Simulated scan of single mutants.
Amino acid sequence: MLNLNILWWGRSDIHYSRNRVIRKCLARLGCSFTDFRPLLSSLGGIEAQLRRLSRPSLVWVPCFRQRDMQAALTWSRKQQVPLVFDPLISAFDKQIFERKKFSAESKQGIKLLNWEKQLFRQADLVIGDTREHCNYFHGTFAVERSRLVDIPVGAEESLFKPATPQTQPTTPIRILFYGSYLGLQGPQYIIEAAKHYTGPPVQWQMIGAGPLLEQCKEAAQGLKNIAFLPWVAYEELPKSIQSADILLGIFGTSAKAHRVIPNKVYQTLACGKPLITMHSPAYPRDLLSHSNAGIHWVPPGDPKQLAITIAKLATEPLQLHDMGKLAQQTFRKYFSEAEIEQRLHKALKHFCS
């Protein structure tokens, strides 16, 4: 048990899946929370002082809250308590390489890099969701290896779990992708795979919305077995996963695509469903070499190989049930709440003294 009093600092959504899983696991380790949502991120330290917040065991700045970091760092130093940062993404990476707002060599790019670098380097512990993200934080922001730890995002196991009773493969085989249609997800390669597909009849379902949706719809014209569906409520998402036969992960070719394991992967494995996704160093090394893990790996940006892999599975639908069982075993071994608890305990136990 850790029994830490954690000051959860920032204008974050505590109901976001990463935050919910982390808080649930920390609570199981005996930790308690004080939630502090400053009115203005930049003035959070002043507000904390005026509200006379009690001195915690540590300050936790959750995902996406780089804007809250400086005030939280200043206040934590005055209180002489450690600060843990769980960024999940890099603002520099997102603005420069994903949104392409400006170049890395521009004044804005250099300024953003230096700003984020000094935030990361001041944290007592920086959490990456994958080993590759930790490598990125070390290489880009010069965060010391001793202050980096990778803890997977996981999935809410109370929601994402196998259907009871287990469903049998449908006819035609139902293939599901869901996501926000970002470049790193590579949804356009799924449409291209559908064009190349020559196996048994399948039904492609594409749930979600985002920047590449219209491009995908245009590319799919003439394909009658692809359905584009709007987002479903988060609580209803498990039903969509459970009713599908094969789930698709991500297939993008960007550097960031090789650093992430998306929510859909964790949620699919937790539901015990077969998964096809890109081969990526973000995954545990021994998992990548495991041929019986409920996952079929394909090269990123390769719609022909994706189509071949889907056809192979659709040709032998009875194997999908066994693949699903292996998928859930993979989740339990590498990404479960129990695994996250163990990693949190190991990472935070020295803050207990």
Rank of each mutant, 00 (worst) to 15 (best):
Ile6Glu: 02
Gly10Arg: 07
Ser12Pro: 04
Ser17Ala: 12
Asn19Asp: 09
Ile22Arg: 10
Ile22Leu: 13
Lys24Tyr: 15
Ala27Ile: 00
Arg28Asn: 14
Asp35Leu: 15
Ala48His: 11
Ala48Thr: 10
Gln49Cys: 04
Arg65Val: 07
Asp68Thr: 02
Met69Pro: 00
Ala71Ile: 02
Ala72His: 04
Arg77Pro: 03
Lys78Glu: 02
Pro82Gly: 07
Val84Pro: 03
Phe85Lys: 03
Pro87Asn: 13
Ala91Met: 13
Ile96Tyr: 12
Phe97Arg: 14
Lys101Tyr: 01
Ala104Thr: 05
Glu105Gln: 14
Glu105Tyr: 03
Lys111Ile: 04
Leu113Ala: 12
Leu113Gly: 10
Trp115Asn: 13
Gln118Gly: 02
Gln118Pro: 01
Ile127Arg: 12
Thr130Asp: 08
Glu132Trp: 06
Cys134Asp: 04
Tyr136Val: 01
Phe141Cys: 06
Arg147His: 14
Arg147Phe: 05
Gly154Val: 05
Phe177Ala: 03
Leu184Val: 01
Pro187Ser: 01
Gln188Cys: 02
Tyr189Lys: 00
Ile191Asp: 00
Ala194Val: 05
Gly199Pro: 11
Pro201Arg: 05
Pro201Asp: 14
Pro201Trp: 10
Gln205Glu: 14
Met206Gln: 06
Met206Asn: 05
Gly208Arg: 15
Gln215Phe: 04
Gln215Gly: 03
Cys216Val: 03
Lys217Met: 14
Ala227Ser: 15
Ala227Glu: 14
Lys239Trp: 04
Asp245Thr: 12
Lys256Gln: 03
Lys256Asp: 00
Arg259Ser: 07
Arg259Cys: 02
Ile261Val: 15
Thr268Gly: 14
Pro274Cys: 12
Pro274Ala: 13
Leu275Lys: 00
Ala282Arg: 11
Arg285Cys: 08
Ser291Phe: 04
Ser291Thr: 11
Trp297Cys: 06
Pro299Val: 03
Pro300Phe: 06
Pro300Asn: 07
Gly301Ile: 06
Asp302Thr: 13
Ile308Ser: 09
Thr309Val: 05
Thr309Cys: 10
Ile310Gln: 07
Glu316Leu: 08
Glu316Ile: 11
Leu318Asn: 15
His321Ala: 08
Lys325His: 09
Leu326Lys: 12
Thr330Ala: 12
Arg332His: 09
Ile340Glu: 07
Lys346Ser: 15
Ala347Gln: 03
Leu348Ala: 14
Leu348Val: 14
Cys352Asp: 05
